[in-house]
């Protein structure tokens, strides 16, 4: 008779203990994640049940009057994150390429620690810096953009003529643009770190192959380092996007909240989910609290989607795999 044998290998006690600990750790992470989601859903339910689909389309935030929704705050959140990514990705990419490909070893070590240190600076510090220094410094640029690129609606301002030299500059303060740039500076070091890490793993054999064909350094980077690092570039960007979506305090300090969809990124007034929660949490009635939980749940879901997208893209690229099989 020909049947397959049952295979059994005794893992031994240490192996079994280690497996238990590892499995427990992995399970715990998943459990915490589900608990957070479940808790948010449980607490948010009264508000969601009352608002139903209008929760996604209402711009105002007056929960006690029954008139509330995340349309304005979610759009604000996404716009701030987009501005942040537009600022952060080129900055991080150039920084990472310089550190991994051009810097001399001494400078490289210093820059790596400086960038990692920047990633560790609390966001409130970025927020204060943005509020007290950067906002004043960037206003002329914001005005310039509104003046010369204002024909593109999102970059225009409403109600003010930017070409009038006597017009006030307060219309450019506390905007999506400024909050986005500050958040961009905040997430750039993290993106830079991820990108530098994958760039430095580009296989030496392929680098030499490109050089041996007579490539310049930039030619080698284009042929070997960038294709190899594609997954890391996308993954780092998504990681930064996730952080930018959830950023609370830096945004809260800079923006002046409005509860209408504000497409004009240069113009004063915007809002974000997390800053809304921070702003209204103290004064909220029990039902208002439930509404805030619902907003939190929406942000939780959006960040989850972004992160899942990031990890699936990063997993499909070949970063980390050399040409030899």
């Amino acid at each position: 008779m020909d049947s397959s044998r049952a295979l059994y290998a005794d893992p031994g006690l240490p192996d079994r203990i280690f497996r238990g600990v590892a499995r427990g750790g992995g399970g715990l992470v998943l459990a915490v994640m589900l608990l957070v989601g479940g808790f948010l859903l449980y607490r948010a339910w009264p508000a969601i049940d009352r608002a139903r689909w209008s929760f996604l389309t209402t711009e105002a935030w007056e929960p006690d009057a029954g008139n509330f929704g995340i349309a304005a705050v979610m759009v604000g959140t996404i716009l701030i994150a987009l501005v942040a990514i537009v600022v952060a990705v080129p900055l991080a990419l150039c920084g990472a390429l310089y550190i991994s490909e051009y810097a001399r070893p001494g400078i490289r070590a210093t820059l790596i620690s400086v960038v990692d240190l920047m990633a560790a600076v609390p966001s409130v510090v970025y927020g204060l810096w943005g509020l007290f220094f950067f906002e004043g410094a960037i206003l002329p640029t914001a005005r310039w953009i509104a003046t010369y690129l204002g024909w593109f609606p999102p970059l225009g301002v409403v109600g003010v003529d930017p070409t009038d030299p006597l017009s006030t500059e307060t219309v450019y303060t506390s905007s999506t643009f400024i909050a986005g740039i500050v958040v961009g500076f905040m997430v750039a070091p993290i993106i830079c770190s991820v990108m530098r890490e994958v760039f430095s793993q580009a296989p030496a054999g392929e680098r030499e192959g490109a050089y041996a064909l007579g490539a310049t350094r930039w030619g080698m980077i284009r042929t070997v380092v960038l294709p190899f690092g594609k997954g890391g570039m996308i993954g780092g960007t998504m990681l930064g996007l996730g952080r930018a979506l959830g950023e609370t305090i830096a945004v809260y300090l800079i923006i002046s909240p409005v509860f209408v969809i504000q497409w004009h990124v240069i113009q004063s007034g915007t809002s974000s989910v997390s800053s809304l929660i921070a702003l209204r949490y103290g004064e909220a009635s029990p039902f208002g609290m439930s509404a805030l939980m619902a907003a939190g749940l929406a942000l939780f879901v959006v960040t989850l989607i972004v992160n899942f997208a990031a990890s699936s893209i990063a997993a499909r690229s070949r970063s980390g795999a050399a040409s030899d099989a």
Binding site: E208, P227, A322
Partner: peptide
Amino acid sequence: FQKPNPFPA
């Protein structure tokens, strides 16, 4: 080179 190093992508 000793190890084949085509550009894999």
